[in-house]
Design a binder for these strands. Structure first.
Length: 824
RNA sequence: GGGCAAGUGGUGGAAUGGUAUACACGCAGGACUUAAAAUCCUGUGGCCGAAAGGUCGUGAGGGUUCGACUCCCUCCUUGCCCACCA
């Protein structure tokens, strides 16, 4: 008898981790004869220690990977590190170390911790984005995009984080603050590199329809972010100059109700409009004032609508009316044309602005519930539906219908143009930081911005650079990096010193995993054609927009270059829930973390894996519970004891003679069926119920009474099945038990068992009798009993007499093998 | 303001039209032990009842149905995402 205790478990886990490493059990290569399965978790930033969020994410992936291996798939399950980024620089400043050294040290530690969990990675494919042979291909992609006009430089107001001393993408600004450090973001005019993600507006939106196996909320979030809106660009005329003033609206049905026009303070026409007029000073003061307000305050939901009158008028093309031109801080330069027509009666924001500045109102849509409404008496804008009024030839038309009619009419009359506007902006990728991929550009006095020739890639990031955090790219101070010759004309030139946003690195790593060692190409096309798409992707919901949108963009670009044959990278997506402690997200700053290390040293990795999957469905939040983990430990101990003490090799065929034999075989088969379904993921992965089914089978096996060699064979068969089914969840201890039961090779090489439908059939079933919807009796009857037989049973039932006597049976409903429902 | 989830015992959760609370945690009682830990056994939604049994019960209210945690309508609460986007 071998005891089941912490020490023994530690010995077993070490033994099998070593065996997997030495035998390269999880090494995989392309094999067109076998069906492939690519399972991938969002790779970590290597901060050193793994946390429970990682454990949860990677355990989910590992169970799927191992299950698919046992089902006979050729499974690609790689791991790598998203290794560029600011924390390394921050650590460098704090500890005066080199970001590179710090990062590689963290990677080494992280690798050890991942190995402790027993994950089934093909370690030969490991990569880190800070390796030059990885980021070389970042530069390559950048140049390819540039060649297609999809990477370009422009001067524009950008989001600037004064704490991180760098620019940020729109996607990195959360509620007007930096996503990383929560510092308020300010606008700065800078000349920066952009990727033209908007080139793929339509495809990114359209193809969301293909993502049937993504959580609907992620699809909705992306749809929202891309933000397609249909409307009309209406050409107002500026009275003074006769120039054209286009405004964008999604409500052309309200055009006859426009009583003023508002421009964004940043609108290029503002200065020209007021130059030399009495309004000039007031307007310029207002523009200055808005500039100094942070974006966060400007969009803080404050309903007060500030603005200033330009003294100028615009002419409404549909009726020739002259209406005042204002500027207002509620109009944003970044959307539409940066100018709006205001219809205060039917838009709440316009309503508030009109009230604030005493501007006129006119009703053009009649509220059916309040047909005699007076514009002057309105307390709020009416934004509902209704028939048009005060709208000339369109009076009486329903406003939804009027949208189309008026749009078409305006287009015919050349008063405007039917247009589509997008919320999605081009992606700003320049970062004034050191620890990232150098942007492969050389600036020459004569030739301008010259791409570094492909043969000169990678542009290597210089080592031993002093990081001070004092602003400006640290690379600026590295003379031998900056001063180069122009690749075109050979004259002295200057290298770009900004690096790429790290989201660039993670936008295509799943492709590199297909052939990570290829030094000739970004990836081997044949390998990518075989492995892509990722069949199952797993990660946190926090990447619902950023990373997942960028990855889709890159895949579409590389698809268009003919490099990859899929246009969407991830077939199925699972967003796992957060791990909580005491009702709050586990985090260092809250001080409520549980260290996976300490759990592993007490219980082993298998218990941790089992608990984290059992405690909640994968998408839900998971509340950490120190005592509940004992349950997982005890369960593994019970299975262990069965194998250790009750398993006895026997030369006999399984018995099926007694009812308990048949029952055990039925339990075995139904466990196979249920667990196979739960792990298939067709209706979501249900690890928690799969584990409960393993517990049920264990309970049944424990109760089974062995009295003959044949019954020992039945018992052995059930126990072997249990260990096989448990193996993806608790791989170390299952390898050991499999070996104890005579297994010659790794349990992951054993085929996943099939279930026998016939064995699931019950001889007798419990049927429930309902009278008027209430349960009044139960019978054990043979399966598939005829209705007449059930009627006889009901009629002879003494218990039911009280309910049936003297009453007429109106309905007699039989649900086969489940229940009888009687209505009296 | 818009969108998406979710609301079930003391706790995590199960059941997607058919016996609500599977499986665990916790708790209570018992066995083993000098004792404890570990392990094993039994019980465990509320109320009434000695028991048999009855009755109520899945956020609230209504509806469909022989039958509703499940479907429909109205509302409440919580979480997440988006948001002066015209």
């Amino acid at each position: 008898m071998r005891s089941y205790n912490t020490l023994e478990i530690k010995r077993i886990e070490d033994k099998w981790r070593k065996a997997w490493d030495e035998k390269k059990t999880f090494k995989v290569s392309m094999d067109t004869a076998k069906p492939k399965y690519y399972v991938l978790e969002m790779f970590p930033y290597p901060s050193g220690k793994i946390h429970m969020g990682h454990v949860r994410n990677y355990t989910i992936a590992d169970v799927i990977a191992r299950f698919k291996m046992m089902q006979g798939f050729n499974v690609l399950h790689p791991m790598g590190y998203d290794a560029f980024g600011q924390p390394a620089e921050n650590a460098a400043i704090k500890n005066s170390t080199d970001p590179g050294q710090w990062t590689y040290r963290c990677i080494a530690q992280m690798r050890d911790e991942l190995k402790m969990m027993g994950f089934s990675y093909d370690w030969d494919r490991e990569l880190a984005t800070c390796d030059a042979d990885y980021y070389k291909w970042n530069q390559w992609i950048f140049l390819k995009m540039m060649g297609k006009g999809l990477a370009y430089k422009k001067a524009s107001p950008v989001n600037w984080c004064s704490s991180c001393q760098t620019t940020l993408a729109n996607e990195e600004v959360i509620n007007g603050a930096c996503w990383r450090c929560k510092t308020e973001v300010v606008q700065k005019d800078l000349d920066q590199w952009y990727l033209k993600i908007t080139h793929y507006n339509d495809a990114l939106l359209e193809d969301l329809n293909k993502l049937k196996n993504w959580p609907s909320r992620v699809v909705a979030m992306q749809e929202n972010w891309i933000g397609k809106s249909f409307g009309v660009e209406i050409y107002f005329k500026i009275k003074k100059t006769g120039g054209r003033l286009p405004v964008f609206t999604t409500r052309p049905d309200t055009i006859f109700g426009a009583t003023y026009v508002v421009l964004a303070p940043e609108h290029p026409l503002v200065a020209e409009l007021v130059k030399g007029t009495p309004a000039e000073k007031a307007v310029n003061d207002f523009v200055e004032k808005t500039k100094n307000i942070s974006m966060r305050d400007r969009i803080s939901g404050d309903v007060k609508k500030d603005g200033a009158f330009t003294g100028q008028y615009a002419i409404n093309p549909v009726n020739g009316e002259e209406i005042p031109i204002w500027i207002g801080d509620y109009v944003l330069m970044g959307y539409g044309t940066g100018a709006i027509m205001a219809v205060p009666t039917h838009d709440q924001r316009d309503f508030l602005f009109a009230k604030e500045h005493k501007l006129p109102l006119r009703i053009v849509i009649q509220d059916p519930a309040n047909p005699d409404a007076k514009a002057e008496e309105m307390k709020a804008a009416y934004e509902g539906e209704g028939g048009l009024v005060n709208s000339k030839q369109f009076n009486g038309v329903g406003n939804e219908q009027a949208k189309a009619k008026i749009s078409q009419w305006m287009e015919q009359q050349a008063m405007g143009k039917i247009t589509v506007h997008w919320r999605l902006r081009d992606w700003l990728i320049s970062r004034q930081r050191y620890w990232g991929t150098p942007i492969p550009i050389i600036y020459c006095q004569k030739c301008g911005a010259v791409p570094v020739p492909e043969k000169d890639l990678p542009v290597e990031l210089p080592k031993n650079v002093k990081i001070t955090g004092e602003g400006g790219s640290p690379l600026l101070k590295v003379a031998e990096f900056v001063n180069v010759k122009c690749p075109k004309c050979g004259e002295a030139a200057r290298r770009e010193t900004d690096t790429m946003a790290t989201f660039f690195d993670s936008s295509w790593y799943f492709l590199r995993f297909c052939s990570p060692k290829n030094s000739e190409k970004i990836f081997d096309q044949k390998e990518a054609a075989y492995w892509m798409p990722v069949d199952q992707y797993i990660g946190g919901i926090e990447h619902a927009i950023l990373h997942l949108l960028y990855s889709r963009f890159f895949t579409k670009f590389l698809h268009d270059q003919g490099l990859v044959n899929v246009s969407e990278p991830f077939d199925r997506l699972l967003t796992q829930g957060m791990v909580l402690k005491d009702g709050e997200v586990m985090s260092k700053s809250r001080g409520n973390t549980v260290d996976p290390d300490s759990v592993i040293s007490k219980y082993g990795a298998d218990t941790l894996r089992l608990f984290i999957l059992f405690a909640a469905p994968p998408e839900d939040q998971l509340e950490w519970n120190d005592s509940a983990i004992d349950g997982a430990w005890k369960f593994l101990g019970r299975v262990w004891n069965l194998v250790d003490m009750k398993f006895k090799p026997v030369d006999a065929q399984p018995s099926a003679s007694t009812s308990q034999d048949k029952e055990l075989d039925r339990d075995r088969n139904s466990a196979i069926k249920k667990i196979t379904e739960d792990l298939s993921g067709d209706e979501g992965f249900k690890f928690n119920t799969a584990i409960s089914q393993l517990m049920v089978l264990t309970n049944r096996i424990e109760k089974y009474d062995v009295k003959s060699p044949e019954q020992q064979a039945t018992f052995n068969q059930a126990l072997k099945t249990l260990v096989i089914l448990l193996a993806p969840f608790a791989p170390h201890v299952c390898e050991e038990m499999w070996e104890m039961m005579g297994g010659k090779e790794s349990v992951v090489k054993v085929s996943w068992p099939a279930f026998n439908e016939a064995a699931l059939k019950l001889d007798s079933v419990t049927m429930v009798v309902q009278i008027n919807g209430k349960i009044r009796s139960k019978y054990d009857v043979e399966a598939d009993a005829a209705e007449q037989k059930l009627r006889d049973l009901v009629n002879s039932d003494e218990k039911l007499k009280a309910y049936l006597e003297g009453k007429e049976i109106k309905k007699f409903i039989v649900v086969p093998n489940k229940l009888i429902s009687i209505v009296v």
